[in-house]
């Protein structure tokens, strides 16, 4: 924002007008209040922002509700192709491993097909698991998490325990306006 300083006289006149305007114009008052908060923001130390105990002096990084439509759509997809919900919702405590194994094939084949069709998956790190790798500074934003004896300054060297997964590309089917995504699988009635 381009900041320009006003002369004392101008400020005095403005303060006079603003005093009454703020007093009698609620909308204007709200805008001034917002402008105050905005002007404050850079002055607040970054550390305070992440501490929820401190009074809210400025907007912290917000938590947002994840949209549920895409989640439901993906679930419906996994159910349709791989009977995913049927599988995890069923009580398998009494079933034999052979029975579970047979059903798992249906789930595995179908869900793998659905994932392949709609997500482009890749490993976060291309090295072999259990090999020694080096992570540079800024690794947190690259999808790498360090565990174990974390101390000192990066670059860190350690053992790659899990390669990680990254969705390079998500391509879900388009949904028609008004389509009820909460029906993950319709009830089927054979006539």
């Amino acid at each position: 924002m381009a900041e320009q300083s006003l002369s004392f006289v101008s400020r005095f006149v403005l303060a006079y007008i603003a005093f009454f305007k703020i007093l009698f114009d609620g909308v204007f008052a709200a805008r001034v209040e917002a402008a105050r908060g905005e002007a404050h923001a850079p002055d607040v130390p970054a550390l305070q922002l992440s501490n929820p105990q401190l009074p809210k002096a400025s907007p912290p990084p917000r938590l947002r509700e994840a949209p549920t439509d895409a989640a439901l759509q993906l679930l419906a997809l996994l159910q349709r192709e791989g009977r995913f919900i049927d599988f995890v919702q069923e009580d398998v405590s009494a079933a034999s491993d052979a029975e579970i194994g047979a059903a798992a094939r249906v789930v595995h084949d179908g869900c793998a097909r659905a994932l392949k069709e709609h997500l482009e998956l890749s490993a976060v790190r291309s090295e072999d698991e259990e090999s020694r790798v080096t992570v540079d500074a800024g690794f947190a934003s690259l999808g790498v998490r360090v565990t174990g004896n974390v101390r000192g300054e990066p670059p860190f060297t350690g053992t790659l325990r899990h390669r990680g997964w990254r969705a390079q590309n998500v391509r879900l089917p388009q949904i028609a306006e008004g389509h009820d995504v909460s029906v993950l699988a319709p009830a089927e009635v054979e006539l």
Binding site: D86, Q89, E90, A95, I100, A102, A103, R105, V106, V107
Partner: peptide, 18 residues
């Protein structure tokens, strides 16, 4: 190669044919 015929109902583990 195993071939599994999925059940029609929701009981996938109990009613699929392998």
């Amino acid at each position: 190669v195993p071939v599994v015929v999925p059940s029609r109902g929701s009981k996938l583990v109990a009613s699929s044919l392998r």
